[in-house]
Amino acid sequence: MSVRIVRTVAELRALVAGWKEEGERVAVVPTMGALHEGHLSLVREAMARAGRVIVTLFVNPKQFNSAADLAAYPRTEVSDAARLESLGGTMVLFAPDGDEMYPPGFSTGVTVTGVGEGLCGAGRPGHFDGVATVVTKLLLISGADAAMFGEKDYQQLQVVRRVAQDLNLPVEIVPCATVREADGLALSSRNVRLSEAGRACAPALARALNTAAGRLSAGAPASGEIAAATRAILAAGFERVEYLELRSAADLAPLDTADRPARLLVAAWLDGVRLIDNVEVRAAG
């Protein structure tokens, strides 16, 4: 079997120590499971960059704002392991339980201001504290030289970059492009919760972003394009748009025009499911 399942910090650290003694480079792909092609693209990138790959599978309770959302999150370890097997090679699946990651008495957290504020940070108070805390633990536990993160969760990527930089963690944070369905919908574990009708209208999110991004790159003011994109998303059948904002790609500062490399980021609700996406916006001119 090419996928070895490890459940304790001690066992994983012992494995990594052996790899390091052999001079191996280690890459880690943090996930919450329910693996799809987007996750597998991160694993392939990790395999290309390192001789040893760790995929983590931990549904982190500290980053959920809703007990119902946490309970509904898919848990599919057996099929996840099978998907990893299909990639070939040799890797470790680190799948700890809650007590292993947060033993009794656990009382430490990591908070990132600036890039962790606004956007998803506003709608999900404490979410990025949970992300920053668990990612810091996973990076330290894994001893990884490189860690793969998808650009679909762009604010999360910036939070993780900030953590690694500020805490001097000896790991390279590798951004990986968003993987999309043929109709443009960004892959997400939450997509399976959409109804057939919802799935049919979901690609309108990416279409609206791309249309607005093109106009913003041509110098259009953000206010008008954001209003137009919001109308298009709602007209397609989304229940509400939680946010749709133009932000600097480097530090997520709010922008009125694309006067520097930027990202257009959105969170919107469809069938009671919260979908996020973002697209690159080239600097105008």
Rank of each mutant, 00 (worst) to 15 (best):
Glu100Phe: 09
Thr56Cys: 05
Met47Ser: 14
Ala71Pro: 14
Asp80Gly: 07
Arg75Thr: 08
Phe64Glu: 13
Met32Thr: 06
Ser66Ala: 15
Val55Leu: 08
Gly88Asn: 06
Ala71Ile: 14
Arg83Tyr: 05
Thr111Ile: 15
Ser41Thr: 10
Glu100Trp: 04
Asp99Phe: 13
Ala95Thr: 07
Gly118Cys: 08
Cys120Met: 06
Arg52Gly: 02
Gln63Trp: 11
Cys120Trp: 00
Phe106Glu: 08
Thr31Lys: 01
Thr113Trp: 15
Val59Ser: 02
Gly109Ile: 13
Arg44Thr: 04
Val92Asp: 10
Val110Ser: 05
Phe64Gln: 12
Glu117Asn: 07
Asn60Lys: 03
Ala34Phe: 00
Pro74Asp: 07
Leu35Ala: 01
Ala72Trp: 03
Gly89Phe: 02
Arg83Trp: 07
Ala67Gln: 15
Leu42Gln: 00
Ala34Ser: 03
Pro74His: 07
Arg83Glu: 06
Val112Met: 07
Gly38Leu: 00
Met47Glu: 14
Pro96Thr: 01
Gln63Gly: 08
Phe94Gln: 00
Asp97Met: 12
Glu77Pro: 14
Ala34Val: 00
Ser107Tyr: 06
Ile54Arg: 09
Pro96Asp: 00
Asp97Gln: 07
Tyr102Pro: 05
Gly121Phe: 11
Ala81Asp: 07
Gly114Ser: 08
Arg52Glu: 12
Val110Lys: 09
Gly33Met: 01
Ser86Lys: 12
Asn65Asp: 15
His39Met: 07
Arg52Tyr: 06
Phe58Gly: 03
Ala67Phe: 11
Ser107Leu: 11
Val115Lys: 10
Phe94Cys: 03
Arg49Glu: 14
Ala95Gly: 09
Pro104Val: 10
Ala50Ser: 12
Gly98His: 13
Gly105Met: 13
Arg44Ala: 03
Ala95Asn: 11
Thr76Ala: 11
Ala34Glu: 00
Leu57Ala: 13
Gly114Tyr: 01
Gly121Asn: 10
Gly121Pro: 10
Leu70Glu: 13
Ser79Thr: 14
Pro30Ile: 01
Gly118Glu: 07
Thr76Arg: 06
Gly105Glu: 12
Met32Leu: 06
Thr108Lys: 11
Gly51Gln: 04
Cys120Asp: 14
Gly118Met: 10
Val55His: 06
Ser86Leu: 11
Phe58Gln: 01
Leu70Asn: 07
Asn65Tyr: 06
Ile54Val: 15
Arg44Ser: 04
Glu77Cys: 03
Pro96Val: 00
Leu119Phe: 03
Leu87Phe: 04
Val112His: 09
Ala72Thr: 01
Asp97Ala: 10
Ala82Leu: 14
Asp69Arg: 05
Met91Val: 02
Pro104Cys: 11
Ser79Tyr: 05
Met32Ser: 06
Ala67Asn: 12
Ser66Glu: 14
Arg75Asp: 09
Gly98Asp: 15
Thr111Arg: 15
Val53Ile: 06
Gly114Asn: 02
Met47Ala: 15
Val112Phe: 06
Phe58Asn: 04
Gly105Asn: 13
Ser107Trp: 04
Pro103Cys: 05
Glu85Gly: 12
Ser79Glu: 13
Gly105Tyr: 13
His39Tyr: 02
Asn65His: 11
Ala46Lys: 06
Gly118Ile: 10
Glu37Pro: 03
Val78Ile: 11
Val55Ile: 02
Pro104Arg: 11
Thr76Glu: 05
Val43Ser: 00
Thr76His: 03
Gly98Gln: 15
Leu70Tyr: 13
Asp99Ile: 11
Leu84Phe: 08
Leu42Cys: 03
Thr76Met: 02
Tyr73Asn: 04
Val110Arg: 09
